[in-house]
Design a protein around this nucleic acid. Structure first.
Length: 558
DNA sequence: AAAAAAT
């Protein structure tokens, strides 16, 4: 097998690699580094978690070490879609360039121009940038890119999603025609294909297997969620999230993805109230806080990272045991990216997604993308220890028809039994991850956040029923980024949502009368898919009586 | 429909 020492890298680079504890390149590294060293263009099709970053930083450092700087012009440029990703590339560069005299500047938004300007004036070898800030510098006349010999585009498909392609084309046009281009994308969308045809010349094409899509090391599950009442959707969903967290015995840390920034804030607040160590991260938070939170999560000081899709791709966060999708992502691709944050480097990972009725279409799209059915987990199971004795099992489940409830004691106890047996199922499913999780000692010297894990486990089990008693809406800390109006609006909408959270759901059991059955409570016959069991149903719990399902199906048909 | 990124 190829070793780094076989790749003819500059001894200074090799030394840094070995000091970082690596000997064997990953497939993308073994594939991309040799042609890059020959000066060829490279088209790398790979996801994060495959060692992609080093596959361009290593040859870049090697080649810069050979040549000579001309008149303080940057000789190399790396473009990344998000600030965090750019910062991560910069850190990677520092690691491997530490025995060289090469210098770099990190040009990203959200921080002042002052330091960046100073570095540019002084002259640097490498620019690592997000497109917007780079062009900003250029337009202010501070930057000449005519000395760029190597240009790297990282996560090109994400740049496409974010509308950066025009910027990228413009930047390409500002660099010399003779530059070498290293271009990375997780997928080859037609638009990406077009760009590569235009700006790459006879590239070496290296493709490595998609990471997570079918990853057997990631245990997936989805919980179908239906609020008892529409106005309780938010609070009940957060309560469900907390139960999911409590139910995951092997959880050491987790990223919780929400689709909206506002929900990121509300959910993070809710978890904190429940005594969990959670922090939000999304694009409206100021950069200093984003950095702090991410560092804290990497170092184990933060156990739960509640995130928008800012964290879905690219970020290298080692050792995440769980990814929880609080919302079903509306682009199926994003699901793959999100769950790819766990189960990395061959480790075991677990992912759980909460799916509301309105998300079933998106769920179906995800399942067709990953070409498998995501196992349904029992969402309404109340942990026995936390379920108050007074509270029958259906507290959080879909309301049953009133008639059935009112007089039918036996059915209730049947329901309780049912719940217990589902607990047993989950309980026996969980430990499976244990043995292998420990089996493979981590060679890299990344800090394992295991103290935090213990803290979490012990964290007060938040009385199952208590929805954050007085959750104030979090102020979207969007100040200073010129989005005042948007941020404020978010705050306004956040406020009622959190405040009206029903006080400790004392009367939670009070079921909505059958007559008011929410028309949106769709029958669960869709999305059950092939492996699904027939909804042959007992009245309560999250199963919907089949006659209701039928009538709705008929209605839908007509 | 939303998030990200330049201000």
């Amino acid at each position: 097998m190829t070793q780094f020492s076989d790749l003819n890298l500059d001894p200074k680079v090799l030394k840094a690699i070995l000091e970082a504890g690596y000997e064997t390149p990953t497939p993308i590294q073994a594939g991309a580094i040799p042609p890059a060293l020959e000066g060829r263009d490279v088209l790398g099709i790979a996801q994060t978690g495959t060692g992609k970053t080093a596959s361009f930083t290593l040859p870049m450092i090697h080649m810069l070490g050979r040549g000579r700087a001309r008149a303080r012009m940057p000789r190399s440029l790396v473009l990344a879609p998000t600030r965090e990703l750019a910062a991560q590339v910069a850190a990677n560069f520092d690691t491997y360039a530490k025995h060289t005299k090469l210098t770099k500047a990190l040009l990203i938004g959200g921080v002042s121009f002052k330091e960046q300007d100073a570095l540019i004036d002084k002259g640097v070898d490498v620019l690592i940038a997000t497109p917007g800030r780079l062009l900003d510098h250029f337009e202010r006349g501070k930057l000449l890119l005519t000395g760029v010999q190597v240009m790297v585009v990282d996560e090109a498909d994400r740049m496409l999603d974010m509308g950066f392609i025009p910027d990228i084309e413009r930047i390409f046009s500002l660099t010399p025609f003779t530059r070498q281009t290293l271009f990375f994308s997780a997928t080859m969308a037609p638009e990406i294909e077009r760009i590569t045809n235009t700006f790459l010349s006879n590239p070496a094409r290296i493709e490595v297997a998609r990471a997570a899509t079918t990853g057997e090391n990631i245990k997936q599950g989805v919980i179908m969620f239906k609020p008892s009442r529409k106005d309780r959707e938010g609070s009940e969903k957060r309560a469900l999230l907390r139960r999911v967290i409590e139910g995951e015995t092997e959880l050491t840390n987790a990223i919780i993805f929400c689709n909206r920034k506002m929900d990121v804030d509300v959910v993070a607040k809710s978890l904190k109230k429940a005594g969990l160590n959670a922090e939000p991260i999304h694009g409206d938070l100021d950069q200093a806080q984003r950095t702090r939170t991410l560092d804290g999560f990497r170092e184990g000081r933060v156990t739960f990272l509640v995130a928008s899709d800012v964290a879905a791709r690219g970020l290298d966060i080692p050792a995440v045991s769980h990814v929880i999708n609080y919302d079903v992502p509306s682009h199926a691709e994003d699901y793959v990216h999100r769950i790819g944050r766990t189960g990395r480097a061959g480790r075991k990972g677990t992912t759980v997604m909460i799916c509301a009725a309105k998300d079933e279409k998106n769920l179906a799209a995800i399942e067709s993308l990953v070409q498998s059915e995501i196992p349904r987990l029992e969402g309404s199971a109340q942990p026995a220890e936390t379920a108050p004795a007074a509270e029958p099992a259906h507290a959080d489940a879909a309301p049953a028809p009133a008639a059935e409830q009112a007089e039918d004691k036996p059915k209730r106890s049947r329901t309780r039994r049912r719940t217990r047996s589902t607990e047993a199922e989950t309980a026996e499913a969980a430990p499976q991850t244990a043995p292998e999780a420990q089996a493979q000692p981590e060679p890299a010297k990344q800090a394992e956040p295991e103290p935090a894990a213990e803290a979490t486990a012990k964290a007060e089990p938040a009385p199952a029923q208590a929805e954050e008693p007085a959750a104030e809406p979090r102020k979207p800390a969007s100040r200073g980024r010129g989005r005042g109006s948007r941020g404020q609006k978010a705050q306004e909408t956040a406020a009622p949502a959190a405040e009206e959270a029903p006080a400790p759901e004392a009367p939670a059991a009070a079921p909505a009368p059958a007559a008011t059955q929410d028309p949106e409570d769709k029958p669960r016959q869709r999305g059950r898919g092939k492996g699904g069991r027939e909804p042959s149903v007992v009245g309560l719990g999250e199963d919907v009586p089949s006659f209701i399902a039928l009538s709705f199906a008929e209605r839908r048909a007509s």
